[in-house]
């Protein structure tokens, strides 16, 4: 069941595509007939620095311009950000956590459980995916965001993989050409399979 508003925070490092992920999520939300909002955490943009982007998908026009305080879903493009202060804010309340990692579930749980609030309260689902590995294999570049996006699309209650593929094609076919677009689409789809 979708509540009135579904809120997503994407955590990444500058250059990993957190901003693009948020924009594509918003456009996919639009395709799904939702009202949408997407914005980056406004700070200096530096390659490699931690960065958050925010996405809201809703049944009503979104009026608030506050940053997301308690996300429904948390997408982590870089596992080194786990258990950092900004990722930890209300993460225990989230329903879905997707992490780009090659580590085992036990190892990731170990890091997350260092946050007592998470350890005691988190009732959601944790999905681990080697997004960087899949991206390198299919796209030939370390672009974990499309894979994470595909994973999210496959299991969330608001948007579909078709929505994401369609907005990706709309936005990128001119920019990066048909071949690269196809590879990205394959990465999106493979994550959901």
């Amino acid at each position: 069941m979708l509540k009135e508003k579904y809120e997503i925070i994407v955590h990444g490092r500058g250059g990993q595509g957190a901003k693009t992920t948020a924009e594509l999520l918003a456009q996919a939300g639009l395709k799904a007939g939702k009202f949408v909002q997407a914005f980056p955490e406004f700070g200096p943009e530096r390659s490699g620095a931690p960065l958050r982007t925010f996405v809201r998908l809703a049944d009503k026009f979104i009026r608030s311009h506050e940053p997301i305080v308690s996300p429904d879903a948390v997408l982590i493009l870089d596992e080194s950000l786990l258990n950092t202060d900004k990722v930890n804010i209300n993460i225990d309340q989230a329903k879905l956590l997707i992490v780009n990692t090659t580590k085992s579930a036990e190892k990731i749980k170990e890091v997350l459980d260092k946050n007592d609030k998470f350890k005691n309260n988190f009732k959601g689902e944790i999905i681990l995916v080697d997004a960087s590995g899949i991206a390198k294999k299919i796209i030939g570049q370390n672009r974990p965001n499309t894979v994470i996006l595909g994973k999210f699309a496959a299991i969330n209650p608001v948007i579909t993989v078709e929505n994401v593929v369609s907005v990706f094609e709309d936005k990128y076919i001119k920019k990066i050409g048909e071949e690269m677009t196809e590879k990205n689409v394959e990465a999106i789809k493979s994550a959901g399979a």
């Binding site: 949408v36 909002q37 997407a38 914005f39 980056p40 311009h65």
Partner: peptide, 12 residues
């Protein structure tokens, strides 16, 4: 219009 809050935010 508010810088970033509107200039850089995606809205309907």
């Amino acid at each position: 219009l508010d810088g970033f809050f509107i200039t850089h935010s995606v809205e309907n």
